[in-house]
Design a protein around this nucleic acid. Structure first.
Lengths: 240, 240, 240, 240
DNA sequence: AATGAATGAGTATTCATTCAT
DNA sequence: AATGAATGAATACTCATTCAT
């Protein structure tokens, strides 16, 4: 097929792709994946040319097809790697969850997501695009989203059981909705250049929305003994 | 150029090539738009063929180009019509806003959005797709989103001024975020078949999240004077 | 698919080919078929290039695909036309069959076949080639062969019923075998340049074999009253 | 040139690139030939992939090219082996030819040919295919055919000299034609699945045609002294 | 002897768009 | 207004063959 028709129907190809069996082969393959990501970031999926990928990896046209079946396939590999990165456990063990207040856990989780999204914003934008017509990429996107949503869902259930969260909330829908909020907000803000916010402010605001939405009791003030008006906290939060 | 690549750079003016000057011409043009929508719904933007559109409109190849410059252009027209439909004022004048409680206004607004999204879910899915690579369509999508967001923003400001909404909230970010939540939740649920929810439950839950997020004071019970526990309200809210 | 893989599995394509709807279109299409035959004769099927066909027909690349789906398809059309030519009724009504002796009918039939095969020997050679890997072309080849075989079969049955042909013969197998003989002999002689025979001699010899094979009684001498030795006839037959 | 088009012009010498010098090498080479035959039988020549041949022989890509120049070359070797098998002298010395009647010799010869063709029908079909575009394979096919034809030709001459065969027959043409008949009938019947005949019946019928064609005097009944009607012989012939 | 990574020329095919009628 | 024939640029993909190890 001379022209890639990005069809949902395209099922996994018959031709098995070659797994590299030597160190050199593994390097070549890795180089292709790296090059592909660069090209996809630069040109988007549709405009990306296999020839450009091969050229940037400094290998021949054929080398590409030695390891990959198609542009779709290498993109899926790039996308999967990104989704894994997005859901990976943090490198530093950090404070154990138990020590943190619900508010802090929400904040930490949102910050982490936004930081990771931002650091790979360009390719995330392309993944968002492709996920709308490649069911495979969409599945990977969904799997990653599910990771966050299920964590929220468990957390919401626990908070409800503890009498800390609004009992009217359906944990499944609410975690979907809040997950959708963060994901779409990230895309809008970080890949589509829609308005520009201060990073810390955005983290803070999303976290307030999240905590409020769950109906969490007001957060005890971090350090100072008194100070009760919410309006005051705003400033301190933004400066964080 | 025999073939237009769907390039982000291609931003042609909206002006249609030929405005029909006769009744028959207007019919032909309208038939093409109608046919295009059907084909886009069936095949998506990338897979849609001008030939299929012309065939379905029962006109020739050339007739298409008599009225439209390109596939992009006719899609933009379809997309714009949808966005307008989404943001249109309700047909029935309904109760004046002033009469409604903030909670009810939120609920009504969410219900209207979800209803409209659902009734055209198929083409909305395609618009979501195309908006990721056609800046013009994206602009239309954003304009429609802005419509909702700005309304929320004004509303949040007013509620904050009235001491009814959490003052820590930045109205701009929050309205963006909540708008993102509803938009993305709609897409996930109504076009990507991700889980399936009861329509009324979904409206209700999104509205609770929204009201909670703004920190609105608890809603007075609709009819009965007493009954204070939130848990009880759940049932009545769902039946709304 | 950038490279034609001549696969037996290739089923009829989904894309309907365009039927010409104007006189000009019909001319273009016919020109392509003519050009294709020339190119196939010159280069064989595998080596033939669509671009060469289009060039020779003095139309663009796209014009080819306006009327045909693939190289296979246009070849099939060329092949079918040849097979039809091979089995077509003679232009001149000629002497009615009833008037002819069995020997003469055999001779006339063989002559006609060989003449027709010879006049299109080049393309027949290509058809023989392609019929070995394109089941569709093979089917056309078989259909034409069947035409001759069934005629022989009926004839053999009649001759057996009349006591003129060897009753041990199974009409189906024998007509297949004699049909195979003439077909393969034609290919060997006329397309593969295997030995070179005088045309009339070849017709005569094949016809003698055929008549002998059926066990027909000796043919009464054409003109002369006596002369009984077969050997003598040879000369006169060859000169026919 | 990275890719050899199967061109009629490509006539490379038979000399193998590397004759194996060790036992192991000879095994590898033999394994490749065996694997090649399997793959050619399964996929045909055009669809056969060197990679599949190497895989089936459980050796690497490079090993193939250590022993063979090209796909053409290994096919030629496979084809030659088949043609040799087809023309090989029978294993059992059998009754000396002199003892057999002309009818019996014809029958024995046809039976042997059909048996051998049938036992390797799959690869014979591929050889028929390739012989139409590889002149080298065609030459091998012709050589084998010539083997039979020349034997027939000598036999016909002898029978004519003995007054047993129709003197009008030109031994060269007739042996070509009858050889063509048996060869093509075999292909049609045994590789193309055209009708299906009982093996013994087919041998018998071809032999009757052959004997009749030569104008041999009727065969004396095998055992019994009397019984003169030809029709009766059919049964006994079939049981042969 | 053997491995398998790397090469890259060669071509069918698509389909938006133009234009003569 | 409408037809539909004609255009042709653009590219993914194959796989025989080479070659460094």
């Amino acid at each position: 097929m001379p022209r890639t028709r990005t069809t949902a129907a395209t099922i996994t190809p018959v031709t098995a792709l070659n797994r590299p069996r030597t160190v050199k082969g593994a390097q070549t393959r890795a180089g292709l994946v790296k090059a592909a990501k660069d090209i996809f970031e630069r040109d988007g999926f549709l405009e990306a040319r296999i020839s450009d990928i091969a050229k940037r990896a400094k290998v021949s046209y054929g080398a590409f097809y030695h390891y990959f079946d198609s542009k779709e396939q290498i993109f899926r590999e790039v996308a999967e790697a990104e989704e894994e990165r997005l859901t990976a456990s943090p490198d530093e063990p950090s404070a154990p969850d138990e020590q943190l207040s619900p508010h802090d856990r929400i904040r930490r989780s949102n910050r982490r997501y936004l930081e990771r999204y931002r650091s790979e914003a360009k390719i995330m934008g392309v993944i968002e695009q492709v996920s709308r017509y490649d069911p495979y990429v969409n599945a990977a996107r969904m799997a990653s989203q599910k990771h966050f949503v299920e964590r929220s869902e468990r957390s919401i259930k626990r908070l409800q059981a503890d009498g800390l969260a609004d009992r009217r909330l359906d944990p499944a829908i609410v975690s979907d909705a809040l997950g959708a909020m963060v994901a779409r907000f990230s895309e809008l803000w970080l890949t589509q250049g829609y308005r520009s916010y201060d990073f810390d402010v955005a983290v803070d605001q999303l976290s307030i929305i999240w905590a409020n939405a769950l109906g969490l009791p007001p957060e005890p003030l971090p350090v100072a003994p008194s100070a009760s008006k919410p309006a005051r906290r705003k400033a301190s939060a933004q400066s964080a």
